[in-house]
């Protein structure tokens, strides 16, 4: 069942178009968010996709715009996955017949410049930069950009509600964009 509707899109675009200046001062919150992002990077590098999915809320979006700040209501994205499509994506990678990932890429990602901003009572917005080095079929390539996360504190942990991946070359032709970024 998809929860994506006009209201969901509108909130999404609103949350990810303005990044305020005032960062959260509380080091505990910042540390908790930093750990979510680092864990996410590690689980993806380890190809523990099911464990990675468990970091995400039941209603979540993984979004890679195709133009800087591109509005998903107006244009296609490199990827725009709700929970079900994210599970599709992982399912496909696990079939063993996704030739773009068979054999699979080796990846390592560095996440840095983490900043945490207030959003709502239980929610925060997190900005971070990433470098992702990928090796596959004898060749290395580098992905880079910044991420916006919307996290929500629920049942004693921060869940990922939205992750927006902003590639610096999102509007250019990409070679084999079949890994989870």
């Amino acid at each position: 069942m998809s929860y994506v509707d006009e209201t969901y899109y509108a909130q999404l675009v609103r949350d990810f178009s303005a990044w305020p200046d005032g960062e959260i001062g509380d080091p505990g919150t910042r540390e908790a968010c930093r750990m979510v992002l680092h864990r996410e990077a590690r689980l993806l590098d380890q190809r523990r996709f099911e464990d990675w999915l468990a970091l995400y809320a039941a209603q979540c979006v993984y979004w890679v715009p195709a133009t800087p700040g591109g509005d998903p209501r107006r244009e296609v994205a490199v990827a725009f996955d709700d929970r079900r499509r994210l599970e599709d994506r992982v399912y496909r990678l696990r079939t063993g017949h996704a030739w773009s990932q068979a054999p699979a890429s080796r990846t390592v990602r560095a996440v840095s410049n983490i900043e945490v901003f207030p959003h709502s009572e239980a929610g925060v917005m997190v900005r971070s930069n990433f470098l992702l080095s990928e090796w596959r079929a004898g060749e290395k390539q580098l992905w880079s950009g910044w991420c916006g996360h919307r996290l929500r504190y629920r049942d004693g942990r921060y869940e990922i509600e939205v992750r927006q991946v902003n590639l610096i070359d999102c509007d250019q032709n990409l070679r084999n964009p079949s890994i989870l970024l």
């Binding site: 107006r74 244009e75 296609v76 509007d171 250019q172 070679r175 084999n176």
Partner: peptide, 10 residues
């Protein structure tokens, strides 16, 4: 036309 999925291959 509303943007594109842009791919490349060697």
């Amino acid at each position: 036309v509303r943007e594109a999925n842009r791919l490349k291959f060697k």
